[in-house]
Simulated scan of single mutants.
Amino acid sequence: MTEKIENPTVAVLLPCYNEEVTIGKVVRDFRAALPDATVYVYDNNSTDRTAEIAAAEGAVVRKEPRQGKGNVIRAMFEDIDADVYVMADGDDTYPADAAPDMVAKVVEGYDMVIGDRLSSTYFQENKRPFHNFGNRLVRGSINGLFGAHVTDIMTGYRAFSFTFVKTYPVLSRGFEVETEMTIHSLNNNLRLYEMPIQYRDRPEGSVSKLDTVGDGIKVMSTIFRMIREYKPLPFFGGLGALVGVIGVVLCAMVTMEFMHTGMVARFPTLIGAVMLVIAGLLLAVTGIILDVIAKNDRKTFITDTNRFAYLRRH
């Protein structure tokens, strides 16, 4: 574990879009749970009184004109300096009283603490069955590929270390950013800790900004893209093996006919089969080359992280 931080500074990060119904209570709850922390509310083009209410409750309110949760988190991570960061939503679905324990785990040396909804009340509180199905699908896909056991891949309640925040490249623009964070952490073998929390559904009058189908497609696209980038050998190697096997089977069929008749009757099939075999080999070679590049990227990330942590201490 890393050196323990004495009297850490804590920043609570609340990305918000039209949350006037709940933001006041959320700010009050986090100020009560973490009285020494600074609460930041980033208003993402709200058309209601979100920013006004948050400021009245004592939060530091800033504007982020680029629409999308990923863009807001990117701005937060760039702008704010603290020893520990706690990120939650402004919809009052996450319990602020869990924040001190999450902060304590980061102080112990964890890079990211995940507020695990799925081990407690999520499936009882969440009334959107497709969201439940999507959580299970994403969790199974990522854990299977990375050999991990993360329970809640997509939770928006997390705590981070300073080094994680300043070295994590936020590429996603929308709600798929949480999935991206988890994959990034697993790929780089960061220190993760899952803490079960009591999830509650949005209160009456508060409207979810999630588009079940649209955002679900974005999440799956993010997983597909990051698997291609972080696990290129299984991705391209598996695709190459599939294409190559089809080509070999077609070649074998043409060869069997030639052995029985003494002539090749299906030249187009033979040509196509040979091209499939060549394509399969090229995909496999591509996977090997990209896998070497991905490993070098992980080495560079570790080196940069160590250098950043050293500079932070000194």
Score class of each variant (00 low, 15 high):
Arg136Cys: 05
Glu194Lys: 00
Met253Lys: 12
Gly272Leu: 13
Arg312Trp: 14
Phe175Leu: 10
Val138Asp: 03
Asp201Pro: 03
Val86Tyr: 01
Ile271Ala: 06
Arg31His: 15
Gly115Phe: 05
Glu176Ala: 07
Arg307Phe: 09
Met256His: 08
Val10Met: 07
Ala82Leu: 05
Asp89Ala: 06
Pro35His: 06
Thr93Gly: 04
Met181Lys: 05
Phe162Tyr: 13
Arg225Met: 09
Ser221Thr: 13
Thr303Lys: 13
Thr155Tyr: 07
Asn7Phe: 10
Asp297Cys: 06
Ala59Pro: 07
Val219Ile: 15
Asn296Lys: 15
Glu176Pro: 01
Met76Ser: 06
Asn306Trp: 01
Pro196Glu: 07
Val41Ser: 03
Thr22Gly: 04
Asp89Arg: 01
Phe267Asn: 02
Leu290Trp: 13
Lys218Ser: 09
Val177Arg: 02
Tyr310His: 12
Val103Gly: 05
Arg158Cys: 08
Ile288Thr: 12
Ala148His: 06
Glu78Ser: 10
Ala88Ser: 15
His314Leu: 11
Pro95Glu: 10
Asp97Gln: 14
Ser46Cys: 08
Asp79Ile: 00
His260Ser: 13
Arg66Leu: 13
Asn44Val: 08
Gly147Gln: 09
Ser206Asn: 04
Ile278Gly: 00
Ile217Val: 15
Ile197Val: 15
Ile217Ser: 07
Val84Asn: 01
Arg139Glu: 07
Asp116Met: 00
Leu250Val: 07
Met102Asp: 13
Glu229Ala: 14
Met275Gly: 03
Asn135Lys: 04
Ile293Gln: 12
Val219Asn: 03
Thr151Asp: 04
Gln67Asp: 06
Ala82Gly: 01
Gly24Lys: 05
Glu180Trp: 00
Thr2Ala: 15
Val254His: 04
Pro129Ala: 05
Val72Phe: 02
Val170Leu: 07
Thr47Asp: 10
Val249Leu: 15
Ile114Ser: 00
Val170Lys: 11
Met256Cys: 09
Ala241Val: 12
Thr303Phe: 01
Glu257Tyr: 02
Ser161Ile: 01
Val27Met: 10
Tyr110Lys: 07
Gly134Glu: 07
Cys16Gly: 08
Phe146Glu: 06
Met87Leu: 13
Thr38Gln: 09
Val106Trp: 09
Phe162Val: 01
Val254Gln: 09
Leu13Tyr: 07
Glu78Val: 04
Ala104Gln: 15
Asp29Gln: 12
Ala279Pro: 01
Ala82Trp: 00
Lys218Ala: 11
Pro196Gln: 02
Val245Tyr: 14
Arg307Ser: 12
Lys25Ile: 01
Ile293Lys: 13
Ala99Arg: 00
Asn188Glu: 09
Ser208Lys: 10
Asp48Met: 02
Ala273Asp: 02
Asp297Ile: 04
Ala54Asp: 08
Ala284Gln: 08
Met259Ile: 11
Tyr199Ser: 05
Pro268Val: 09
Thr303Tyr: 02
Arg173Leu: 12
Leu239Tyr: 10
Leu242Ala: 13
Leu14Arg: 00
Thr269His: 04
Gly134Leu: 09
Ala96Phe: 06
Leu186Cys: 07
